[in-house]
Amino acid sequence: MRELERESPTNTVRIAEQPRIPSLAIIGPGRVGRSVAAAAERAGIRVRLAARDDAVDAGRESEAALLCVPDNEIVAACDAVVRAVPPLRFVGHTSGATTLDALASAHVAGAEVFSLHPLQTIPDGATELAGAPCAVAGSSDAAVELARQLGARLEMRPFEVPEERRAAYHAAAAMASNLMVTLEESAAELLDVAGVDSPGRELLASLVLRTAANWAERGPDALTGPIARGDTETIERHLEALQELAPELIPVYESLSERARAIAAAAEAVR
């Protein structure tokens, strides 16, 4: 249905009526770069996807460059594309934790700099970005507006994060996504060690998805289980089982249990 919508005459008119987005060079043909490039092409933006070796040529053909590279490669990628300034007018990156300081060489050369971080897990180069929030920042009002318009054209929901709080913002994202995968994989491994005769991920998937949906709808009121109801005997049995089968998970369980108690107490206090 989404593809049909994008190809419909109505959608063509809608794209034409939107603010113009400069031609875009995407530097870095990895998972993020390919996903952003695909979304940009669907939005009718003229885009060139290039590796760092072709960054200068791609930049000279574009008005804006978006660096879709790992955090520790942003400075080098920026130094590579900076030779295209001008005609390149804007240089951005897609990092969540990195500030605009990593783009200093482009700014010194006369380009405005920005960032656009999709708040979305991107496991492959065909990841759908539509509907996801995206954190934006810019060195000027024009750069922020470009980042906002680009995010909107990619059908994401732009919002701003203070530069000095980028690391905290990204830590929150990592907790919600990366560490959740780590936690669920640990739970699945525990089921395997316990001798449960079925793949742990298959058994836990519906519980995980329903819990996430409950949290999205109810926030801390979605918390259930022995900690929420103060069932200390069951918690002790959990710890005894972990001591026998997976002692390395005891610190994880205890830390999360302490945090769960605090959340449950805070939720109860406002009821």
Score class of each variant (00 low, 15 high):
Glu233Pro: 11
Glu61Met: 15
Ala269His: 04
Gly33Thr: 03
Pro162Thr: 13
Arg166Ile: 04
Thr94Tyr: 09
Gly230Pro: 02
Arg165Pro: 12
Arg201Thr: 14
Ser186Ala: 15
Arg148Trp: 13
Gly59His: 07
Pro87Ser: 00
Thr94Pro: 12
Leu49His: 02
Ala102Met: 10
Gly200Glu: 04
Ala187Phe: 00
Leu67Phe: 10
Asp79Tyr: 03
Tyr169Trp: 10
Ala50Arg: 06
Val47Leu: 06
Arg48Glu: 11
Ala176Thr: 05
Arg20Ala: 15
Leu67Ser: 11
Thr99Arg: 11
Ala171Pro: 08
Ala142Glu: 13
Glu254Ala: 10
Ser186Arg: 01
Glu128His: 13
Val136Lys: 09
Val108Ser: 11
Leu242His: 09
Glu73Ser: 15
Ala16Leu: 15
Gly28Asn: 10
Asp54Val: 06
Pro133Ser: 10
Gly131Ile: 05
Arg52Cys: 10
Leu150Trp: 00
Ile122Ser: 04
Leu190Cys: 01
Ser8Gly: 07
Ser62Trp: 11
Arg210Val: 00
Ser8Thr: 12
Ala176Arg: 05
Trp215Lys: 02
Glu41His: 13
Leu24Gln: 07
Leu249Ile: 09
Ala135Phe: 08
Pro70Met: 08
Leu67Pro: 08
Pro133Leu: 07
Arg271Ser: 13
Val36Ser: 11
Arg20Pro: 13
Val270Trp: 10
Ala152Gln: 13
Cys134Trp: 07
Ser23Phe: 04
Asp221Val: 03
Ala246Val: 04
Gly59Leu: 03
Glu248Trp: 14
Ser62Met: 05
Ala174Gln: 11
Ala135Thr: 08
Pro118Val: 00
Ala38Tyr: 06
Arg210Phe: 01
Ser198Leu: 15
Glu185Ser: 10
Glu184Gly: 01
Asp54Lys: 14
Arg218Lys: 08
Ala260Trp: 02
Leu4Val: 13
Arg166Trp: 08
Ser8Ile: 03
Ala111His: 06
Ala260Leu: 02
Pro158Gln: 02
Pro251Ser: 04
Ser255Val: 12
Leu119Ser: 12
Glu163Pro: 09
Arg2Asn: 14
Gln18Val: 07
Ala65Arg: 06
Leu4Met: 14
Arg148Tyr: 11
Glu185Gln: 03
Ala132Phe: 01
Ala38Asp: 03
Gly110Phe: 05
Asn178Glu: 00
Pro118Asn: 02
Val208Tyr: 03
Glu63Met: 09
Arg14Gly: 14
Pro19Ser: 11
Ala97Trp: 02
Ala194Gly: 11
Arg6Tyr: 15
Glu17Ser: 15
Asp192Arg: 14
His93Met: 07
Gly33Tyr: 01
Val82Pro: 01
Arg153Thr: 01
Ala266Tyr: 00
Val85Met: 05
Ala216Lys: 07
Leu129Trp: 08
Glu128Asp: 12
Arg46Trp: 08
Asp53Asn: 09
Pro123Ile: 01
Ile21Asp: 09
Gly230Met: 05
Gln120Asp: 07
Asn214Val: 05
Ala16Cys: 14
Ser198Glu: 15
Ala132Arg: 03
Ala126Phe: 13
Gly33Glu: 04
Met156Asp: 02
